[in-house]
Simulated scan of single mutants.
Amino acid sequence: MNIDIICVGKVKERYLQDAIKEYAKRLSRFCKLNIIEVADEKTPENASEAVNAQIKEKEGERIAKHIKTNAFVIALAIEGKMLTSEQLAAHLEDWGLHGVSHIQLIIGGSLGLDPAILKRANMLLSFSKMTFPHQLMRVILLEQIYRAFKINAHEPYHK
């Protein structure tokens, strides 16, 4: 299975970079992982809703350039569906059984995702009603994907 993580911005913190590398290494036995970073827009302090919408649109255009027509697209969004780790694992297994060979997960920038990206997504996924830094979300997402593969392989990591 091919899994792309399309995300806005770069991870600057070394400890997060190290965690991302570790999970990417662990995932290499289960899937072909590709992390695609697109540039983020500078968000001015106290920006208007119109400016925020323009920023999300620009970031959305950059994201859209990497979305494959044949991919199953999952956008991370606070209004998305919340799943347990076991449910995510079941979805991954089910998608694979039904011919899905390319999954693209999208993490937006600090303002979230452009409505056009949310509309294109096959699924909206939420990890919590809380807001997380998008750099940290990469680590959380990779850990949960790894956990899902371990669950499906009936290996003990997930307990």
Rank of each mutant, 00 (worst) to 15 (best):
G9L: 12
G9M: 13
G9T: 10
G9S: 13
K10N: 12
K12D: 10
E13V: 13
R14F: 12
Y15S: 14
Q17A: 03
Q17T: 07
A19G: 12
I20A: 11
E22Q: 15
E22W: 08
Y23A: 02
A24W: 07
A24R: 14
K25Y: 13
L27H: 10
C31S: 12
L33C: 07
N34S: 13
N34D: 14
N34M: 08
A39S: 14
D40E: 15
E41N: 11
K42H: 09
P44C: 01
E45W: 05
E45I: 10
N46Q: 11
S48I: 01
E49Y: 05
A53T: 13
A53D: 13
I55Y: 00
K56V: 12
E57N: 10
E57I: 08
G60I: 01
G60V: 02
K65I: 06
H66N: 12
H66E: 06
I67C: 02
I67W: 00
T69G: 04
V73C: 04
I74R: 02
L76F: 10
A77N: 13
A77K: 05
A77W: 10
A77M: 06
E79Y: 02
E79D: 14
M82P: 03
E86G: 08
E86W: 12
Q87R: 05
Q87E: 14
L88H: 03
A89K: 00
H91W: 12
E93Y: 11
D94M: 12
G99K: 06
I106E: 05
I107K: 10
G109A: 07
G109F: 09
G112Q: 06
G112T: 06
G112K: 03
L113I: 08
D114C: 05
P115Y: 04
I117M: 03
I117T: 11
N122F: 00
N122S: 04
N122E: 06
M123D: 08
L124E: 11
L125A: 04
S126H: 00
F127T: 00
S128P: 00
F132D: 05
P133N: 13
P133Y: 09
Q135S: 11
Q135K: 10
L136N: 07
R138V: 01
V139R: 04
I140E: 11
L141G: 01
